[in-house]
Design a protein around this nucleic acid. Structure first.
Length: 316
DNA sequence: TAAAAAGACCTCCTTACGTCA
DNA sequence: TGTGACGTAAGGAGGTCTTTT
């Protein structure tokens, strides 16, 4: 394990481009913390006597994973400052805000930035190089700047993880928190803001997908239930009809209207009167089950074939 | 005190870019 | 090496809310 701490005036303005010159840590993680202005500001103030402080921690000091959610990030410095001795997550927000509150434009603290460019596994992130290039390249043409403005900068894994952890606790940021987070992660406040906006959109999209799946399952379940109930209802109706005929109607009162060919009980019953209220049906000469040789005892009571009906008509 | 203007921030939609199979 | 799918950073439009004038 190696710890390198640099305090004091730097011979030149520090930029995060310098990390390419640092030790190759192999699988270890490099951690560069910088106090001072970086990027364009650092470039423009390179000749100033501003104090620049750079702290390199190589690699991360081991931190127990079990303390707080933040500890899982293995950002030891953050853990100490954001979670405090009690590990109370609420302290993080307070500290983040305080870090802004105590900042003044002229203080060293105000220009504090933390480089989260972790270059492990020999993989060098170029995002910040582009960021710095963009900021320091005052000689770039407007066209180049315009094209760079749209250039997409992927956040490092560590930045994303940290933002995710923060988002898990609160999905929105107030302006102070936004600025503080941006400073910690060496991002622009706008980037932090956009990240939270997109993150909320992703959360909402996922929730919508989950809701859709749930509603779809509910729909399928209800459709099946509805089909089952419809079948049951049909059976019950058939059963009820047959019971009514068996229990309430005499066998000889079943009749059929020759004109409309509908089967009914005799017109003298209330049920028949309700079923065939027209005088045509009532006076047309009903076809009784008795004169057709049918019996209510037979299930095929209502099964009159067209030939039967035709024969009955001809006879009448 | 009410109304208009300004600004910040949000959601929604879209675009552009980086990554990966 | 080229390509399409996918994830995501970022831009823009339009709405809402708060503050200022």
């Amino acid at each position: 394990m190696e710890l390198a701490l640099s305090l004091g005036e730097t011979p030149k303005a520090m930029t995060f481009l310098d990390k390419s010159q640092k030790v190759n840590f192999g699988n270890d993680l490099g951690f560069c913390m910088t106090l001072g202005e970086t990027g364009a500001e650092a470039k423009t103030k390179a000749s100033d006597s501003d104090l620049h402080i750079q702290l390199d921690l190589t690699p991360f000091s081991p931190v127990p994973r079990s303390q707080t959610s933040l500890n899982k990030l293995h950002f030891s410095w953050i853990n100490e400052n954001l979670t405090g001795e009690s590990g109370n997550v609420n302290k993080r927000s307070r500290w983040v805000e305080d870090s802004v509150a105590i900042s003044s434009p002229n203080s060293i603290v105000s220009s504090f930035q933390m480089d989260f460019s972790i270059y492990g596994n020999g993989r060098v992130k170029r995002e910040f190089e582009g960021e710095v290039d963009r900021g320091t390249s005052s000689r770039a043409s407007d066209d180049e700047e315009n094209s760079m403005a749209r250039r997409k900068l992927r956040l490092t894994k560590e930045q994303s993880v940290f933002l995710e952890e923060y988002f898990r606790e609160q999905s929105t940021l107030n302006p102070k928190q936004k600025v503080a987070l941006a400073k910690q992660l060496n991002l622009r406040p706008r980037q932090v803001e956009v990240w939270f906006q997109n993150r909320r959109a992703r959360t909402k999209l996922k929730q919508t997908q989950v809701d859709c799946e749930y509603i779809k399952k509910c729909y399928e379940t209800l459709t099946e239930e509805n089909r089952r109930l419809q079948n049951e209802l049909q059976e019950l109706r058939a059963l009820k009809t047959s019971q009514l005929l068996y229990m309430q109607l005499p066998a000889t009162t079943l009749s059929m209207c020759p004109s409309c060919e509908r089967v009914s009980t005799t017109a003298t019953t209330a049920a028949a009167a309700a079923a065939y209220p027209t005088t045509a049906c009532a006076s047309a000469g009903g076809m009784t089950s008795s004169n057709m040789g049918l019996s209510l005892a037979e299930p095929k009571l209502f099964s009159f074939s067209p030939a039967q009906i035709h024969a009955q008509r001809a006879a009448s």
